[in-house]
Design a protein around this nucleic acid. Structure first.
Lengths: 248, 248
DNA sequence: CGTCCGGATTGATCCATATCAAAGTTGTAC
DNA sequence: GTACAACTTTGATATGGATCAATCCGGACG
């Protein structure tokens, strides 16, 4: 397990919500300086996890939500039967753990896909604070509702779309999330293994692999291991939308 | 569209959160009398919709969440290509519209599956109130998080389970929701058509139909149209769990 | 620099479920 | 009571992706 880096009150790190380049993605507040101060009061910043380390484990006491600062996180559920179901990938600026706010234990396990730093928000303090800052409360509702919608989107992908459509959708989702961080939307490195992609999208690894090569042969992408280049974003968008083929 | 029944302040209906048999399921509050009073101040009770009527429509301005009082509700998304994806079924005591709290318009359409009465919670007022009542805020987080988990559960069902497993899971889910309302968990009437079940579970109608008859032949259920009797709940639970077959 | 090992790719085959097609059934409006 | 429309069931066939089985690649490590 990872060893959190202890942060003392008034440590130099404490000021960094103000400086954090992700502050507008993570838990953005009105430009009220003191609101951001109060958020900083409750957050534990800069905890680092190495690739493969667990940020939290399913069924252990639920204490905190975590904002990804850098790196990336995979969440998954382990069923009674021992199967894994990947429930999401989280990139910098995104909040992990919202699905656990209904229970006293974590509903899933969160694992760092690479060296990853996170900010920790203890739930109790967070709830106190959202009770005082309507903007922040609103934003929490926003994030949770967004996550519900993501779930529906995924359900839709899983129940109605072909392997190609699912993978195109994932690539485009990642692309736009990189773009939001002002990184290249066409040239990035997948943080997760083919296996994780397959599991997340309800496919076999082999299928994922085949679709990648098919896309490559069609000139839609270039892929070398985890390194991916989107060569024809429009065509990829067509792929996802062409579940509407029959309508035309 | 349905015509809401106008409720005047201080109408006799106003007192009914106290009396409502679902108050412990819907938005339960500490036994503080005055908290329930404040909830009553913001809720519009007793709006009735007939079968097929829309409670709200995707892409129209998001104003309110709705608690189902009686009857049942189906939510679904219509994609650009015109396909429908059923995202959920809501029974009495459950709150519809949480997935829309991130946007200014409804993320889905909610349709009454039968004659249905709902209580309306205008979001603005609801957010104000949750800011003042920590218990209520906590409960909102709870409900939303629960819905995220439901989504993951569904995604899992869709990506890993066979038609039989999906349908067994749905029947058991409905069963326990009926039980929560102190109705028979083994003898109930499905509020939705086979079509909706199929769509929700990512199956073809024909498959749903076949699985129902298969279950019937195996003596697990008796089904006559929408009337269903669960004859062997344990066996149904086995069906859902037997995705763990290979482990034994 | 070779060896080893987990992950990725490629190929061949099979199966669960979609799809197509056609009756049945139920409810309900006239 | 009849008849239409919507829903459901049943049967025959087709197929996308799973599964099984090698092989291949890249990086860590001796």
């Amino acid at each position: 397990m990872a060893q959190p880096i202890p942060i003392h009150k008034h440590s130099p790190l404490k000021a960094s919500c103000h400086q954090c380049s992700l502050s507008n993605l993570c838990l953005p507040l009105a430009i009220e300086e003191n609101e951001l101060d109060r958020l900083e009061d409750i957050v534990q910043q800069g905890r680092i996890f190495n690739r493969g380390e667990h940020i939290f484990d399913q069924s252990t006491p639920f204490r905190s939500c975590f904002a990804v600062k850098s790196g990336s996180v995979k969440t998954s559920i382990i069923t009674e039967s021992g199967e894994e179901q990947v429930t999401g990938f989280f990139m910098p600026g995104e909040l992990v753990g919202l699905d656990s706010m209904s229970s006293s234990t974590y509903a899933c396990t969160a694992k760092a896909l690479e060296r990853t730093s996170v900010c920790e928000f203890p739930v109790e303090k967070l709830e106190d604070l959202t009770g005082k800052l309507p903007e922040l409360q609103h934003h929490m509702y926003h994030l949770m509702s967004q996550e519900i919608q993501n779930g529906h989107q995924l359900a839709m992908l899983l129940s109605k779309n072909t392997a190609e459509e699912r993978i195109a959708a994932l690539l485009l989702s990642l692309s736009s999330r990189f773009q939001r961080r002002r990184l290249s939307p066409t040239n990035f490195s997948l943080p997760m293994a083919r296996n994780d992609i397959a599991n997340f999208l309800g496919l076999a690894v082999e299928t994922v692999s085949r679709v990648f090569t098919r896309f490559q042969n069609q000139g839609l992408i270039r892929a070398r291991g985890r390194e991916v280049e989107l060569l024809d974003v429009e065509a990829l968008q067509m792929v996802t939308r062409d579940s509407s083929r029959q309508g035309c």
